[in-house]
Simulated scan of single mutants.
Amino acid sequence: MSNVRIIVLTLLAMVAFAGNSLLCRAALRDTSIDAASFTTIRLLSGAVVLWLIVRMRHSSPAGAGNWPSAFALFVYAAGFSFAYTGLSAATGALILFGAVQATMIGYGVWVGERLHKPQLIGLCLAFGGLIGLMLPGLSAPPLNGSVLMLVSGIAWGIYSLRGKGGGDPTKVTTGNFLRAVPITLAMSIFMLSGASLDTDGFWYAVSSGALASGVGYAIWYTAVPELKATNAATIQLSVPIIAALGGVIILGEPVTLRLVLASVAILGGIALVIMKKQNANSAR
């Protein structure tokens, strides 16, 4: 694969991932769709598109994925949607990314991975940024939404950890999306009394599931094998930044000093952990 194609695919994947935050926030802020319906339509449309992609490759997702991972996927998607009823796109993306990375780094430490001094400093910096972002104050994000996004990020971190070494990632993701559909349908039925839907909200949810999730994951899994581990990890640091820029330019969201400082602390701290970890691995 040529370098130009790798760059284009990687950029498209990062834009797609950031697009999930923008689409969800726009739908729940500007249309009448409820969070449960958004989640269900997103997961259902994502499952359909991923299934079609796998079938176009003359393969089948049969037997791929598992129910625990599907439940983690559902918790991520539901927490994500309900959090964005109150959070800005930038704040939500930043909390989500910080929680995902903290979960994965924390698991590494729990199973015996040693952190060197620069990594510990980076981890403390990232946690400090998350805490600083959520502390009470005039520019603090809503607490309920922040907690829901933290739960969403932890769930996605668990999902990512469970997916390591699980086989073809596109097939595994497809299998998990398909399993998540009945779970999210059950949630929508349970919350049917509060359901609300309009045309714009429906298409935002379909775009989030089919394009930003389904096509986005397929593109990313195509590019990842061509990227070094360090590059693949650090490139993902761009997602909250892209979401923040999109929130300002497309949704007209304000940028606060608290958000800027928290972004520098969280993304800088995580970058320090990732890069030092990869440097240590390559030196062995």
Rank of each mutant, 00 (worst) to 15 (best):
G201Y: 13
L22S: 02
G165D: 13
R162N: 03
P136I: 12
V181F: 10
T256V: 06
N281P: 00
D34S: 13
A262N: 10
W203T: 12
G63H: 04
C24R: 07
H58V: 13
L251E: 05
F127Q: 06
A35T: 15
L148E: 01
L73C: 03
I95N: 06
W51E: 11
A64W: 05
V147P: 00
L87N: 14
L94Q: 04
S88K: 09
N3T: 07
L130I: 14
N20E: 09
A280T: 10
S59K: 12
S88L: 12
A13F: 09
A180Q: 02
T40Q: 10
L22A: 01
P182F: 10
A72V: 05
R258Y: 08
S207Q: 06
H116T: 09
A218T: 08
F202M: 15
L22E: 05
Q119R: 07
A64T: 01
A210E: 10
A99P: 07
V260Y: 05
I189R: 05
I105T: 00
A186Y: 12
D34C: 10
T40F: 13
G122N: 09
A64P: 00
L123F: 13
G268Y: 06
A16V: 00
W67H: 13
K276N: 15
L211V: 15
V111M: 06
V109R: 10
V255T: 09
E253H: 04
Q278I: 09
T230L: 15
L28T: 13
R42S: 10
A47T: 05
N176G: 07
G108Q: 07
W220D: 01
W203K: 14
A77H: 03
Y221E: 04
D30V: 03
A205E: 11
L161P: 03
S152I: 01
S21G: 00
S238H: 04
L115M: 12
G132Q: 11
